[in-house]
Write a protein that binds this DNA or RNA. Structure first.
Lengths: 214, 214
DNA sequence: CGAGCTGGTCAACAGTGTGTCGACTGAATC
DNA sequence: GATTCAGTCGACACACTGTTGACCAGCTCG
């Protein structure tokens, strides 16, 4: 588990959780994820979450400091998975580095795809909530380092062309993935079929890193 | 000018605007843009807008149906400019198509950069307001058509490699630009200097379309 | 046993923001 | 001088957030 998000009540002892208390907490989280699958974040109130978990609104505030804190807890779990997935796939030694990269992008999509409602809600809140933003940038940072390192390595090998700073290229590529992820989940541009997205992204990544048509 | 956004009061005769009435409307728009340069959209209330324009809150509602409608009007003007800019630059006949494309990306950045506060606010609202989203997708659609056409043309000429559908590639590239635009304006990742962004994006675009290192 | 602590619960309150209603004004217009 | 109508706002109804204070049930320790 990751460190406790700061918006959560510090009062509650994390070490000695009451059974019933933890049940409530789980009920709130489950309710949030369920409701997010039905309507967007801004159309869900703390009252909805409380009622959904079978408690009153003040009691809700006993468990979470705000609606955002619930989302943060939900999102945190996904971020952890995504981080673990990236480290796993990119750390693996494999014959074809390009294939490894394509697979990492696929895993990225699958991890967030398994919780698209939460992912979309996080995107919705990102601009106005710095904690969610920082959580997200954690994943982005990991990708940026790995990708920049790859580009530089390929440049030294002579396989990749020189040009703009490797890190800048990496960040732009990652942001593309991020935006496409959200767009796909939000159902924007239905023209691009969801299965093909990873292939399209991989094409651009590999064109940029190695050159096209390999 | 573009068609009147639908959230604006239909009551007000667009054809016979009172001088003082138009002044008020302008005052509200100016106030909104000014306040957005100071704090994010969600921290601005209709009361702030009304007071800033020297009127009461109910009077504000005489001119705009909501806070979102103000942003929509503001954003609409920028969208028009961006559209005009794209058509202008990409329509120009020029020796080097790659340079033309690079220039178009630069103009895209400059147009929105001249109103970054409004652009950021639009980004903030995009997920929860379909009208803003549609306005934005208008620009994206124009770029998608042009870009897809270019890729297909280059493929026929044999300069561009075959692969994923041209339109899908185009959309991914455009979304990258979109995300980088917002990130730059929001001050995310200060590592990438703002001047270099266009160069980085152009590198990826041209790598994808023509192959790298040209 | 019973006094007291503690996690848990909620009715009621205070505050902030949105959007509407209805009455009012003052300058055209007839 | 009456009528109309864009423009204006005080006051209201409502929705949502976050807090306070009283209360209860179970545990624990003298």
């Amino acid at each position: 588990m990751s460190p406790t998000p700061s918006t959560e009540r510090p009062v509650r002892g994390r070490r000695a959780p009451r059974v019933s208390g933890d049940d409530r907490e789980r009920a709130i989280l489950a309710t949030a994820e369920r409701l997010l699958e039905q309507r967007p974040y801004h159309e869900i109130s703390t009252d909805d979450l409380a009622r959904g978990a079978g408690i009153s609104r003040p009691t809700f505030y006993f468990y979470f400091a705000s609606k955002d804190a619930v989302l943060l807890a939900l999102f945190d779990r996904i971020i952890e998975q995504a981080e673990a997935g990236r480290v796993e796939v990119l750390g693996r030694d494999r014959d074809d580095p390009a294939a490894r990269w394509r697979e990492a992008i696929g895993v990225f999509y699958e991890t967030f795809g398994a919780h698209r409602a939460v992912t979309l809600a996080a995107a919705e809140v990102q601009l106005s909530n710095s904690e969610v933003r920082e959580l997200w940038s954690k994943v982005m940072e990991g990708w940026a380092s790995d990708t920049a390192a790859l580009i530089e390595a390929e440049r030294e090998r002579g396989a990749a062309p020189p040009g703009a700073p490797a890190r800048d290229l990496a960040i732009a590529l990652i942001r593309m993935n991020e935006r496409m992820l959200h767009a796909t989940f939000a159902g924007e541009s239905p023209s691009v079929s969801e299965q093909d997205v990873v292939e399209v992204l991989a094409t651009i990544w590999l064109s940029t890193i190695y050159g096209p048509a390999r």
